[in-house]
Amino acid sequence: MPDKRGLVLIGVALLALGVGATMMRRAGESRRLSFSESDLQVLEGKLQGFKVEDLGGLSGSASSLNFGEQELDQIGLKIDGLSFEDLEGLSSP
């Protein structure tokens, strides 16, 4: 009967669509990650900005976590800030 055949065809078509949609969704889910490319970019930015400075002084104009080499010379409490010459007379009190 034509009506019956039509119904079967519609059923088959719907089934095919359903199976196809499920397969596509699963494929998408299998690739879904908890992070995106922008997270990778943020991480890269942090790594690029991660600077390790040698001990130059007790300072760092940009951040306290950066020791700037030149700035040791600027600190007032530097060791040679007050030299032994400043204390002349020590040998002849």
């Binding site: 007790l58 300072s59 951040s63 306290s64 976590l65 600190i75 007032g76 007050l82 204390l87």
Partner: peptide, 23 residues
Amino acid sequence: SKAALKAALDEAEAWLNWVELEV
């Protein structure tokens, strides 16, 4: 000399306060 030493101590103190707050 005493004034210079005291100023150096003030500087070190101010620096330490800054380090602590930055962290």
